[in-house]
Design a protein around this nucleic acid. Sequence first.
DNA 1: TCACTCTGTCATCAA
DNA 2: GATTGATGACAGAGT
Length: 652
Amino acid sequence: MQIAKKYFTDGLIQLTILLSLIGVRVDIDSYLSGYYSPLIEINLGPSSAYTQTPFHNLRDTLDGYSVHPKCPELDYFFASRRLLDEVRTLGSPRFPTQLNAWLVHQVSATDKAECGPSTSNNTDTSTELETPGDEVRDGSEHLPDSGQEVCQTTTELGQGPCNAGACGFLKEKDDAKVQEEEEPAPLTQLAHSSTLEQESLLEGITALSDPARQHPPTIDIDQHWNNLLSLSVTDLDDLDSLVTERLSDLDTDITTAISQDVSLHDAMVTSAGAFGVVSERVESRPVPQQQRTLFRLESTGSSHSDASPGMALGLAALPFASVCNLTGNVSQHSELGGCLDEAVFDQINQLGLEGLDPIDTQLMGCLESIDPQVLEDLDSDSGLSLESSSGGPVSPGSSDMSSSSSSYCEDECGATGYSSEVDSVPSKGIMDYTTTWSPIDLSESVWHDHSYSSPAFYNQPSVTLSHKGIKEEPLSDDDGPRLDERDLSRDEMRARAMCIPFSVLQIVNMPVEEFLEVLDGHGFTPEQVTLLRDIRRRGKNKLAAQNCRKRKLDAITGLQEEVERLHAQRDRLLREKQLTAKTMGAVGQQIKQLTRDVLARLRDDSGQPLNPERFTLQCGANGRVVVQPVRRPAVSTSTGNKTDKRKKEKKQ
DNA sequence: TCACTCTGTCATCAA
DNA sequence: GATTGATGACAGAGT
């Protein structure tokens, strides 16, 4: 489990760093401070580490239906695209980036006409989408003017910065081939090629949109070949309007998918679109946000069989959403473009999708097979803490302490503040692993307090457990008499051997007056009295030693913090000193310059400018500025002469 | 086996 | 003077 978590966490951190480099925001905090335990997250799949932006949820939940990356509609969609690629390999020139621009234009046109401001969620993208499509249609030479990063790649034929986004969507197989076939093509061929892709894409969209036409995951390749090859030019001419019509139906979904921020999951979807990898999709059931984040990447297995039209529409819109989402960010980080994204997406797919599923299943199975109480016990047993033996297992009602002892323990509690403080903190690390979880600092969960004054200590049976009690079974009401002799402390065994009818706890914690009465009123032998005094003294001293060590540790911690604070203060003062020196130097230079300027404007009695080498400006205490002659080094030489005279006098 | 930590105990001092 | 708390030192057990 630890290995799995480490594996997941390391990968997640690397992934987050990479995504941050390309401008994708990932909310790691939500993972770190998540409502659910990382344990549960491992079991149920990575969750909140993946961004929970509203866009993410909106796009994942289209018309209330969830979209799963493994649903057959996606397979069909990308299979159609693969078929399109096969068709293009037959000889038609391929200009994938131009096609992409054309499609984006179509989306924007319909979107602009019907939805208007609804696309303003992403200003960058909407601006790009509002590019006049005529420029794109007129020829490839207009594409770079469209203002889109996506379109700019047209002139570069897929070598531009949009490899990960819109271009990458069509580029999985084409990059190498397109670069080989960089030859000018007639516009008709271009339109034909574009239309073919539209047809293929639209066919996928239509198929996904129509629940009656849902295809099984396995695709009849021959049928698609026939469909694609049987397309006539006249049929293709009608595709513009058809695509526009279809896309107008999608615009709502598309616009909801447009956002400035791209979540990790968005990147995964884009990855699927760009590289043909069908990633897992989000399970967007109408569950609370916490649970939604928890189950975000949980595999839904075959649940996609009941995919709805809205779901299919969402799937169809995904490539466009990916284009729109990544364009803004990729344009800002174009230099990191494709290779980085590819690495990121590959890592996403390897990390989140392939590796975690079996782990999740195994861990969930293991966790479910474990009794929660056992988990509590395991977690609470740090291997060092003695609280489990002295505190927890003993119920308050199990005390066999006499009423007199319980009457004075209240007074003793205040004398040992550390003990009561420790007892006030629950020693159980996981309160309820099914409901809440908070990160546990194990160093804080380990207590070595054996305080006699703790409530549990008072409520214990008349048995003092040594530190061997770490591995002891929890005590029940009738465990006391059955305890093995080796479980008793030395003082307890001595007391039993000497037939002393008081427990060590009682002896230690009773007031001195009562203790003296006990010594006097029970007719103890001198040996018994001595033992009683020793037991009391050792018990008191033990508490004192614990408190003393606690104070010592606190003092050490405080001193360490003080040292760190002083180091920081020293560094800050040094920086201030350097800054001040730099400022003083600059001010001195300014003063010198100003002095030269002023002196250059002044005239002496003969009307000649004052020599800056011989005069200087002196600012008096009253604020007046006076011109003073510069003191010659002769002054220093005179002082030097004086010192020389002194030296000579000393020699004499 | 060794180093380290934790804990109990003793001795001592001071209040 | 007795009691108690604080603390250094030591030893044993456990890791």
